[in-house]
Amino acid sequence: MSQSAEQVAEQIELPESAQRVAGLLAELGHDRPVVMLPATGKTSAEAAAGLGCSVAEIAKSIIFRRVEDDAPVLVIASGSNRVDEAKVAARVGALGKADARFVREKTGYAIGGVCPIGHAVPPVMLLDQDLFRYDSLWAAAGHPHAVFNLTPQQLQQMTGAEVADVALGAAA
């Protein structure tokens, strides 16, 4: 039988970036621990496999660069959805590619571990409306192996992100 998230978290010491996220979550009064996955959670499929949940229950963080002012744009999407950049751009302005250096500078996190909270530069944020189909979500906690559990409502409250239709192929 598999171990609980709490048991796994107790067995593995958190890397510095995940400790920072755990501290932020504690400050917000979040009562669930940061969990270290035994294998990478860099992709939604890897994280879901390690957690025993569906890919759709992974709240993946995707960073874009807004062209007009170089601002970071964070889209938190269901792991099963591809983000429709045209829908995002229609809400926030023209988008450019965010390379690894941009992501690290603007968020403070490496690609594959971008947490929805605690960014170096506060991003423009959109939250995928499809995440609200699920009772429980998992989001990156600052490291490719670190995640934390929360509800869609908690995610929206923590981030203040606008809920939007961001999925490719969904109705506009």
Rank of each mutant, 00 (worst) to 15 (best):
M1W: 02
S2P: 15
Q3P: 07
S4V: 10
S4R: 10
S4M: 09
A5N: 13
A9K: 01
A9R: 10
E10W: 10
Q11N: 13
I12K: 00
I12Q: 05
P15S: 11
E16Q: 10
A18W: 02
Q19K: 15
Q19I: 07
G23T: 12
G23D: 14
L25I: 10
A26Q: 15
G29P: 08
H30Y: 05
D31C: 00
D31K: 14
P33S: 07
T40A: 04
T40K: 07
K42P: 05
S44D: 10
A45Q: 14
A45R: 06
A47R: 02
A49G: 13
S54W: 04
A56R: 07
A59T: 09
K60H: 05
S61W: 00
I62G: 03
I62Q: 00
I63W: 02
F64S: 03
F64L: 04
R66F: 02
V67M: 06
V67A: 06
E68L: 12
D70G: 01
D70E: 15
P72A: 01
V73A: 02
V75P: 07
S80C: 12
N81A: 15
N81I: 04
R82G: 12
R82C: 11
R82H: 11
V83T: 08
D84K: 02
V88H: 00
A90F: 08
V92K: 04
G93A: 09
L95T: 06
G96R: 04
K97V: 04
A98Y: 06
A98C: 12
R101V: 14
R101F: 11
F102D: 07
V103I: 15
R104K: 14
K106C: 03
K106D: 06
G112K: 11
G113C: 08
V114Y: 00
V114E: 03
V114S: 07
C115V: 03
C115W: 03
P116K: 04
P116S: 09
G118T: 10
H119V: 14
H119M: 12
H119Y: 06
V121H: 10
V124G: 05
M125D: 02
M125G: 00
Q129G: 07
D130A: 14
R133S: 14
S136E: 15
S136M: 13
W138I: 06
W138S: 03
W138Y: 15
A139N: 11
A140L: 08
A140V: 06
H143M: 05
H143W: 08
H145S: 03
H145E: 12
A146D: 09
N149P: 09
N149Q: 15
L150H: 00
L150R: 03
T151F: 04
T151N: 07
Q153I: 06
Q154H: 03
L155V: 10
Q156T: 06
G160M: 02
E162L: 13
E162R: 14
A164M: 05
L168W: 11
G169I: 10
A171M: 12
